[in-house]
């Protein structure tokens, strides 16, 4: 059984079973794939370094079409589509790169059974886990408080027959892990 995050002298620590780590690593990698910008083979690496998208000023530049990606990168200005797109031109690539960095770090942390997070790594891990939950929630069609409660009520792995039932249990596991980390982090503020 997994042991939740708690404050220790070494930092925020949790212990996860190998199957749980494998599951989480796969989820982090799935979200990285959603966020990875389409890169030209001959793209100057400077674009990525400064967080800009070489396509940002082309006519076809638009908000992401996948709803889960869009939830990770929402419109900044819902009243003004032109301003919202301008915000994306300037900020979206940088936000994607930061998220991908946190998700890669989180995936690598799944290599050992004990997860140890220092004060700087903990918020990045929390954000990576949160992005995983946002994507799972989108795939599950979780939109209202009632949906959230119905998903939360599912707790029996032996009864998970459908993909959605399995995803709901995965979502609950990731939620449990993040909540334990947040309680430990709040205590240390």
């Amino acid at each position: 059984m997994a042991r939740a995050f708690k404050n220790t002298k070494r930092g925020f620590t949790a212990t996860l079973e190998s199957a749980e780590r494998k599951l989480l690593r796969g989820l982090f990698q799935d979200v990285i794939q959603l966020l990875e910008p389409e890169r030209e083979p001959d793209e100057d690496p400077l674009w990525a370094m400064v967080g800009l998208d070489p396509h940002a000023h082309k006519d076809h530049f638009a908000a992401p079409s996948d709803p889960a990606t869009r939830r990770l990168l929402p419109d900044a200005d819902p009243d003004d589509p032109i301003a919202a797109l301008e915000f994306r031109r300037l900020s979206e690539r940088g936000i994607r790169e930061r998220k991908i960095g946190a998700l890669r770090e989180a995936a690598m942390l799944m290599d050992s059974a004990t997860i140890v997070l220092g004060p700087e790594a903990a918020p990045r891990f929390a954000a990576a886990v949160n992005d995983v939950r946002l994507v799972l929630a989108e795939r599950l069609g979780l939109e209202t408080q009632e949906d959230a409660e119905a998903i939360h009520a599912q707790d029996d792995w032996s009864k998970a027959d459908t993909v959605d039932e399995y995803l709901a249990l995965v979502y609950n596991f990731v939620t449990w892990l993040q909540e334990s980390l947040m309680q430990a982090m709040l205590k240390s503020l």
């Binding site: 990770l72 900044a76 200005d77 009243d79 300037l90 900020s91 940088g94 949160n130 946002l134």
Partner: peptide
């Protein structure tokens, strides 16, 4: 506020900006 929105999106919160009077 644009910098704040970018930071909130980095954290995964659903944040938008608006003119204060609106």
């Amino acid at each position: 506020i644009e910098a704040d929105v970018a930071a909130m999106h980095g954290f995964g919160l659903w944040a938008t900006l608006s003119k204060a009077d609106a």
